[in-house]
Computed example of a mutant assay.
Amino acid sequence: MSVIDKVAWVRVEDGRVLSTRSRGKDAYYFPGGKREAGESDMQTLAREVREELTVSIVPETVAPLGTYEAQAHGHRDGVTVRMTCYIGDYHGTLEPSSEIEEVVWLSYADRDRVSPVDQLIFDDLRASGHLR
């Protein structure tokens, strides 16, 4: 079995959660990505969010949300993604970068539009009253 290890930023505002769609993809994903060699979770989070959304994460506001694992969207059966999620504030204006086609705020009604691992996070956010 193969595991894709990722770090993601989960940003909830007014009952909706920030999500992105990369060029050529059919599902929405939380901002984030894979670690580069030697990177900490915080370094990966800051780099990926800056690359995807042109904003800076405020390090002192970052807190762990949880780690989730599910079948990796668009990969063969048996390939899973393990996503370590963080919340936190940001500076700047959210703008899609060259690799991001769309930046959206999703509600629980949009659950079927996100990847399987993101669906688990949607369920937790809904259960805790953060996602409408």
Results as ranks from 00 to 15, higher is better:
69 E>L: 04
96 P>T: 08
62 V>E: 01
102 E>R: 15
73 H>W: 11
74 G>H: 06
95 E>N: 08
95 E>W: 00
91 H>M: 01
50 R>Q: 12
86 Y>Q: 07
45 L>Q: 04
102 E>F: 01
55 V>C: 03
46 A>H: 11
84 T>Y: 04
71 Q>Y: 04
84 T>F: 03
50 R>V: 03
97 S>E: 05
87 I>G: 03
78 G>S: 13
101 E>F: 09
62 V>F: 02
88 G>W: 02
83 M>T: 10
78 G>R: 07
76 R>W: 03
63 A>L: 03
83 M>W: 01
95 E>C: 11
61 T>I: 02
107 S>T: 15
40 S>T: 15
79 V>I: 14
91 H>Q: 11
71 Q>L: 07
60 E>W: 09
91 H>E: 15
60 E>G: 00
99 E>L: 09
46 A>R: 15
104 V>R: 15
47 R>Y: 11
80 T>A: 13
45 L>S: 11
54 T>F: 06
73 H>Q: 15
78 G>T: 02
47 R>E: 08
69 E>V: 14
99 E>H: 10
95 E>I: 07
86 Y>L: 03
48 E>F: 04
86 Y>S: 01
44 T>N: 07
90 Y>G: 00
44 T>Y: 07
40 S>Y: 03
43 Q>G: 09
106 L>M: 10
67 T>N: 03
87 I>H: 02
56 S>F: 04
86 Y>A: 08
93 T>M: 00
50 R>D: 12
107 S>E: 13
74 G>R: 08
99 E>C: 04
70 A>H: 01
47 R>I: 07
57 I>H: 01
42 M>W: 05
98 S>M: 12
90 Y>Q: 06
51 E>W: 00
80 T>Y: 10
98 S>R: 14
84 T>D: 03
107 S>L: 13
80 T>M: 11
101 E>A: 14
104 V>K: 13
59 P>G: 05
74 G>A: 08
58 V>K: 11
53 L>K: 01
47 R>D: 03
49 V>W: 02
95 E>S: 01
44 T>H: 07
82 R>D: 11
67 T>M: 00
64 P>A: 10
42 M>Y: 10
101 E>N: 14
81 V>W: 08
82 R>W: 10
53 L>P: 06
77 D>M: 09
103 V>K: 07
77 D>V: 08
65 L>T: 03
101 E>R: 13
40 S>N: 10
61 T>M: 00
65 L>M: 06
80 T>E: 13
40 S>D: 04
39 E>G: 09
106 L>C: 07
